[in-house]
């Protein structure tokens, strides 16, 4: 009896294996994997509950526009990055006019205590985070913040750390001879260091029409010289989350990564000087 049952089971199992190869399964689309990547890129970065109103609901129009841009233009981004020969860096072109962050959205968290509209430290109001003493910036950021050693630059006039959207540290130099004004009249040079990478990760950037992104090299690393209209971008944070950087754009930007950190240097000094300053950072 047991033998017969075993035989029946064996027959049933063989029949099920055969049946399994005859099921009408749907086949994944050819772009299945890239669509997963798009969904990952479009996910909002979780906000801690104590950080106040959700950015998702606080700025729905902008967020929706952002997601739409990312979804619709990702393909162009990949093609552009591959075409530019910089694997790992994906830039999204064609950011539509009118979606530039409104100043009111940016300045909400920017002003450090004790600074007013006039007489504020340079960079206050750019959405760079909280003001910190220059000597404490490494401790506040939780990583070593590089500074240019180029003698033409000198000592920064203000320092900021932002920890609510990834970790970012910014150094700001006031306008002075040799450091002409950027779009922000009081700021001659802005250097931001992000605790995240773009070297081999997913990095997307939205820039406006008429803006150019020219591939350059900084200390042997792939970099972009971005000039033109305002822009914002995502980078990959240390925990793998996508972080949207929405700090205000003040000038032509040099953007690069050393594999651990990502850097953005903004000024009105032009490409070659920006690269020289970037390569002097220690």
């Amino acid at each position: 009896m047991s033998d017969r049952r075993d035989l029946m089971t064996a027959g049933l199992e063989a029949g099920l294996l055969e049946l399994g190869r005859s099921i009408a399964y749907p086949a994944p689309a050819a772009d299945f994997a890239s669509r997963v990547a798009q969904r990952i890129a479009a996910r909002p970065v979780p906000r801690p509950w104590w950080s106040g109103q959700s950015r998702l609901f606080g700025r729905p129009v902008r967020r929706a526009a952002l997601v739409a841009v990312v979804l619709l233009l990702l393909l162009a981004a990949v093609a552009a990055a591959v075409g530019l020969g910089l694997p790992g860096l994906r830039i999204i072109f064609g950011f539509p006019p009118g979606v530039t962050p409104p100043p009111s959205a940016i300045t909400a968290t920017a002003s450090p205590p004790g600074t007013g509209a006039s007489g504020a430290a340079p960079g206050a109001g750019l959405g760079l985070g909280g003001s910190v003493a220059l000597g404490r910036i490494d401790a506040a950021a939780g990583f070593h913040v590089l500074r240019p050693t180029d003698p033409a630059v000198g000592t920064p006039d203000a320092a900021y750390v932002e920890t609510t959207r990834g970790r970012q540290a910014s150094l700001v130099w006031s306008t002075r001879p040799g450091l002409p004004a950027t779009l922000e009249p009081a700021v001659g040079l802005l250097l931001t260091q992000y605790d995240g990478h773009l070297d081999t990760g997913f990095f997307s950037k939205a820039i406006g029409g008429g803006t150019t992104a020219e591939p350059v090299v900084v200390n042997g690393s792939n970099a972009y010289w971005v000039s033109g209209q305002p822009h914002f971008f995502f980078y990959t944070g240390r925990s793998g989350e996508f972080v949207e950087d929405d700090s205000r754009w003040v000038g032509d930007a040099l953007l690069w990564s050393d594999g651990t950190y990502t850097y953005r240097l903004e000024s009105s000094l032009g490409r070659e000087t920006a690269i020289r300053i970037a390569e002097s950072m220690r």
């Binding site: 399964y25 749907p26 086949a27 994944p28 299945f32 994997a33 890239s34 997963v36 990547a37 990952i40 890129a41 790992g88 995240g196 990478h197 081999t200 990760g201 997913f202 990959t236 944070g237 240390r238 925990s239 793998g240 989350e241």
Partner: peptide
């Protein structure tokens, strides 16, 4: 935080996942 390696994993397992 790299997505490209993850895309490779997706391609490996997309059939069985679907």
């Amino acid at each position: 935080g790299e997505v490209m390696p993850y895309e490779e994993l997706v391609r490996r397992y997309q059939d069985v996942a679907v």
